[in-house]
């Protein structure tokens, strides 16, 4: 079922829930198309018939209460769920028209196109420099000048250059939490991916560090397609162009952030946004 590619709004009745595919709005069209995507952890199903198209060059936020499957969905996009025993998937995820769950798909090549930032900063126990250029190193790039250039570009992009330029050789573990998270963003962007996946990137940070990261996301949105999972609805409202609301493994509503936050069509979205549950 190539539902995701459908350009018009097309409600699908599915177990009493309405799953909505969003109209393409971005000038460049959709970069990721998800159609009828199901995921099981062993016997229990975590995602039900998720169906959406992620627009190129925009920031898309996934919101919803804990356990609704938004992180699972995000981790399905670069196949990080492959690492978990007993995970099965069904349905389509297409990156630029190619099915990433195809048996011939190259997972490593896929992950090179999808930068990922995790909930907790996870710098490697190496120097700041080596952390940033890690994606290039695994590609076998060893030319010092190329690496230095990539490192500076990525660190500038993550607004960390000024703070870190004099201590590139020091251990990344000596940075503060907020700096570490920006370092992880620099690392995720150093390989120049197409899509940046962010899994609650600010949940372990203090408000000032959070503000910096949000500012950064604004800047990144021009260059990358960003998909961000967040618990913080203000954050979603502030940084994203599109918002998807998920509930109990289903995509309930997906559309313009403004629309979702002002005139949600589903009562559950309304309830969540106004804080009645979640």
């Amino acid at each position: 079922m190539a539902v995701a590619a459908a350009p018009q709004q097309k409600p699908i009745a599915q177990g009493g829930y309405k799953t909505v595919c969003h109209v393409k709005r971005g000038p460049a069209g959709a970069v990721l198309e998800i159609g009828g995507f199901n995921l099981w952890y062993g016997a229990s199903q975590a995602l039900f018939e998720v169906c959406m198209a992620v627009e190129k060059g925009l920031v898309t936020a996934l919101i919803g209460p804990s356990g609704c499957g938004k992180s699972t969905l995000l981790r399905s996009l670069n196949r990080m769920n492959d690492l978990i025993d007993g995970v099965r998937t069904g349905g389509l995820v297409k990156l630029d028209g190619e099915d990433i769950y195809d048996s011939r798909a190259d997972v490593i090549a896929l992950r090179k196109r999808m930068g990922m930032v995790f909930q907790k900063p996870n710098p490697f126990p190496m120097s700041i420099f080596e952390n940033v250029v890690y994606p290039l190193r695994v590609d076998g790039v060893n030319d010092r000048a190329t690496l230095q250039e990539a490192c500076e570009r990525a660190l500038r992009g993550a607004a960390l250059w000024e703070e870190a330029k004099d201590r590139l050789g020091e251990s990344a573990l000596g940075l503060s939490g907020g700096q570490q998270q920006r370092l992880c963003i620099a690392r995720a962007t150093a390989g120049e991916p197409d899509v940046l996946l962010m899994d609650e990137p600010c949940s372990a940070l203090d408000p000032i560090a959070t503000a910096k990261i949000e500012e950064l996301m604004d800047e990144l949105s021009g260059q990358y397609t960003v998909i961000i999972v967040t618990h913080n609805m203000q954050q979603a409202a502030r940084v994203s162009d599109n918002t998807a609301f998920m509930y109990l493994g289903r995509l309930i509503e997906y559309g313009d952030t403004e629309e979702i936050f002002t005139t949600p069509s589903d009562p559950r979205t309304q309830d969540y946004i106004t804080g009645r549950f979640g």
């Binding site: 670069n78 990080m80 690492l83 490593i108 090549a109 992950r111 090179k112 999808m114 930068g115 990922m116 995790f118 907790k120 996870n122 710098p123 490697f124 890690y134 994606p135 695994v138 590609d139 992880c184 690392r187 995720a188 390989g191």
Partner: peptide, 14 residues
């Protein structure tokens, strides 16, 4: 920690 492995794999490392 799992986060270390995931961080590396997400960078496209085998």
């Amino acid at each position: 920690p799992r986060s270390m492995r995931e961080g590396s794999l997400a960078c496209g490392a085998s």
